[in-house]
């Protein structure tokens, strides 16, 4: 199944690099504009579970990398049956059914913008909201990019590599005086 999927992908989409480091992982590097179509493609293939969206700050290359991790609900069941009923004869295909696909794309760090994946996977909503808050990436078409976790505003979104939390703690929390000391 993995090779079939790989061939399919390569024939449909240009400009993508695919690697399969393990039997059950597929890593795809895609261009920005292809992401939603590829996600759609996987959804139609039965990979109907968006496990998460993650973001990595590659500060040296001046880019953010967005990672969409997609798995599957529906092909699990037969595979699971195979594994219990016939332990020795688990085929590669059956084992791959539970695999994950990592779809990666890079966006510029200076002007971090992307489009929302909500039309394809509805549960991407909180993930995008979180990435917006912690990395400052703007998702076009997202209905509510309001703060999710943070109470204070930070000049640099805190999960970026150039945000130094130790420095921030010194500058902010340590400046607040103890009540006892202030009296004297």
């Amino acid at each position: 199944m993995i090779s079939a999927l790989k061939n399919d992908l390569e024939s449909i989409f240009k400009d993508i690099q695919i690697s399969a480091p393990e039997d059950d992982r597929l890593i795809i590097n895609a261009q920005k504009d292809a992401v939603l179509t590829i996600l759609k493609f996987f959804k139609d293939k039965g990979y109907d579970h968006l496990a998460m969206i993650s973001c990595t700050d590659w500060i040296e290359e001046d880019e953010f990398e967005l990672i969409y991790i997609v798995g599957s609900y529906s092909v699990y069941a037969p595979a699971a049956e195979d594994i219990t009923s016939d332990k020795s004869g688990v085929s590669k295909e059956a084992a791959f059914n539970g695999g994950n696909i990592l779809l990666k794309t890079r966006i510029s760090r200076k002007d971090p913008r992307f489009i929302t994946a909500i039309p394809v996977f509805e549960n991407s909503e909180p993930y995008e909201r979180e990435i917006h808050e912690l990395f400052g990436v703007d998702f076009k078409g997202h209905p509510r990019l309001t703060p999710l976790f943070l109470e204070r505003e930070y000049k640099i979104p805190p999960f970026r590599k150039d945000f130094d939390t130790r420095r921030y703690v010194k500058d902010f929390f340590d400046q607040i005086p103890f009540v006892e000391n202030k009296e004297k």
Binding site: F149, L150, E151, R152, Y154, P158, F163, T165, R166, Y168, V169, F173, D174, I176, P177, F178, V179
Partner: peptide, 16 residues
Amino acid sequence: GGMYWDSYNTIKHLDK
């Protein structure tokens, strides 16, 4: 602050 002594979002000395 305990083990979150360098966290940007936790209060370090509550008695302040």
